[in-house]
């Protein structure tokens, strides 16, 4: 292995050619590489701008100066092998990483032009502007109704009519209304895994978030439930910007407009999904999307 090699910035490979593994080798050797970002990404209107964002867990660096815009009204998938930092990146957007004492960050993110990491930022109101859905369905041990309206309740909303209307709207938005409309008073823990996850999505969209963050929302679900969630993401994407983390390339291909490929804390390639899948500019990306490594 060429541990002493200088960083080699690979040139775009031409489809059929046997690709070189230059970028991966450079990353493994600890070198910084420049991300390949397609023009289509940077051209449009971005709701979220990640700017030279680095994150450390104590001494270990988990994200290496990631710079990426997230397009408004689109579904953007972040993909990559386990441990590449995609969940960390997503959780950095609504500052859930603040809960870990040893975390240190550099760089910033901008949500609609406003800084997320400025010391004066009110984290709580920032999180209210973002909706988050986690890997494992995590409904509260309360009734279905209370689960959905929880974000409104903590905002002090008490009017029954407003709560009921919002509950119905977001349950319909999450395509679960027909299944639960007769049992809103029952505990949410009685629902199946897929239903619970859709309930969590309903909870995440009840307060009209600017960006919906999905952290591998299907990894704990069976294929049928996964399919329903994917359909749901499609429907939601008409109204919300969605940022989804997935290690499943097929899922990224199915649901997303844009795909970012990460490796060991670096953003490797980021572009429109069909281009990344069909005409990747890096051989490594192609190898990953076709399942030859990762």
């Amino acid at each position: 292995m060429t541990g002493t090699a200088t960083p080699r910035i690979t040139r775009p490979s031409n489809g059929a050619d046997e690709p070189e593994l230059g970028v991966i080798e450079a990353i493994r050797a600890g070198h910084e590489v420049r991300s390949v970002i397609h023009e289509q990404v940077t051209e449009g209107d971005a709701v979220l701008n990640i700017e030279a964002f680095s994150l450390y867990y104590g001494q270990a660096q988990a994200l290496h100066s990631v710079t990426a815009p997230v397009r408004r009204g689109k579904v953007t998938a972040i993909s990559g092998p386990s441990g590449c930092g995609k969940s960390t990146l997503l959780r950095s957007v609504n500052r859930l990483n603040d809960l870990i004492d040893s975390v240190r960050i550099e760089g910033d993110m901008l949500l609609n032009g406003e800084s997320i990491y400025h010391p004066r930022v009110d984290v709580i109101s920032l999180r209210k502007r973002l909706g988050m859905v986690f890997q494992k369905p995590n409904p509260f041990p309360m009734s279905i109704f209370e689960n959905v309206v929880y974000p409104l309740r903590i905002d002090g909303e008490k009017r029954r009519s407003v709560l009921e209307e919002a509950c119905e709207r977001s349950l319909k938005g999450a395509a679960i209304w027909d299944e639960v409309k007769d049992r809103l008073k029952e505990s949410a823990l009685g629902l199946s895994g897929g239903q619970q996850q859709r309930l969590c999505i309903a909870r995440a969209i009840v307060a009209d978030p600017e960006v919906l963050l999905l952290d591998e929302p299907c990894s704990a679900l069976d294929p049928v439930a996964t399919l329903r969630i994917e359909e749901l993401i499609h429907e939601i994407s008409e109204r919300y910007t969605v940022l989804i983390v997935t290690h499943n390339m097929q899922q990224a291909a199915r649901v997303s407009d844009f795909t970012a490929f990460m490796y060991l804390g670096r953003l490797v390639e980021y572009g429109p999904t069909d281009e990344v899948f069909q005409r990747p500019r890096l051989g490594e990306t192609e190898q990953y999307v076709t399942g030859r490594f990762g």
Partner: peptide, 14 residues
Amino acid sequence: PRSIREASLGCGAS
């Protein structure tokens, strides 16, 4: 569990 704390914090609860 940590997961439901995060769910609550993620909803914008203090």
